[in-house]
Design a protein around this nucleic acid. Sequence first.
DNA 1: AGTCAATACATTGCCTGTCGATATATAGAC
DNA 2: GTCTATATATCGACAGGCAATGTATTGACT
Lengths: 115, 115
Amino acid sequence: MDGLNPELMRGSLDLMVLSVLADGAKYGYLIQQRLREASDELVDLKAGTLYPILHKLEKAKLVRSRWDDTTGRKRKWYELTAAGKKQLGHRVAEWQRYVTCLRQILGPLADVAPA
Amino acid sequence: MDGLNPELMRGSLDLMVLSVLADGAKYGYLIQQRLREASDELVDLKAGTLYPILHKLEKAKLVRSRWDDTTGRKRKWYELTAAGKKQLGHRVAEWQRYVTCLRQILGPLADVAPA
DNA sequence: AGTCAATACATTGCCTGTCGATATATAGAC
DNA sequence: GTCTATATATCGACAGGCAATGTATTGACT
C-alpha cells in the first residue's frame, strides 16, 4: 500500500482481487498492475500478499487456475468460478452496507468535502 | 461485529472510537453502546477489542482518561486531546479517500443499488 | 437473604492476515 | 555481461481482533 493507511485495506483485499478478475482471467503479476492502475497507485499489492490471497481463494473454489507454458514466460492464469462470481456480488453488497454504516457512525464528520 | 464480515472492520475500529468521542467524553461501556446504536447493531465492539484500542489511543496521546470515583460505579472517562481531534480529521479524510479508491477499483460493480 | 442480569474495566492467549525478505528463473535492453 | 522488469512462491516477524476469563458493583425479582 502506498498513500493510505495499510490497516484500512485489511479485509477488502480479497474483494479487490475478486473484482479485478470480474472482467476476465488474469495472471498474478497482471492483477498487481491492474490494481495499481485502477487505484491511482494507492494500492500496491506485494507478492507476499497477493499470492497467499490467490491460493486462499482457489482453495475456497472461488477462483480456478491454469498454467500457461506455451509462451516463453510461465504464467498462472486465474479466473472466477461461478461460485466466485456469486461471492463477489455478496462482497460488494457487504462493502456498501459497511460504507453506509460507517457514514452513520461518523455522522456530521462525514459531511466534510471528500478529497 | 454482527451482520458484517469482521475482517472488513479491521483498520477502521480506531476511527470509530475516535469519532464517537468527537461529541464529548465517554467511558468505555458507553462507547460500546453508542457504537452499537449508531450502527444499527452492526458494530458490537467486544471488551477485549475496545479496551486495548483505548489504551493504545491513550498511549499515543490521542485521548486522555480520568477515573470518576464520586459515583458508586467506578468509571474511566475518555476524551479527545487536541492531537486526537486533529488526528480524527486526518482519519476521516483518509477514509473518504479509501472509499473513493475502492469505488474506482470496483468500477461498474459499484453501480448496483446500495442497500 | 439469595440469585441473576446488567454494568464496568481489564488481561491473557489463540488465530489470522499482511508484508518484508528471500529464492528461483526468463526476457529484453544496453 | 549486467541490469531491470517480469513472474511465481514461501517463510517468518509482527500486529490486531476477540473469546475466555477475572473482578467487582448495582438493581430487580423472588
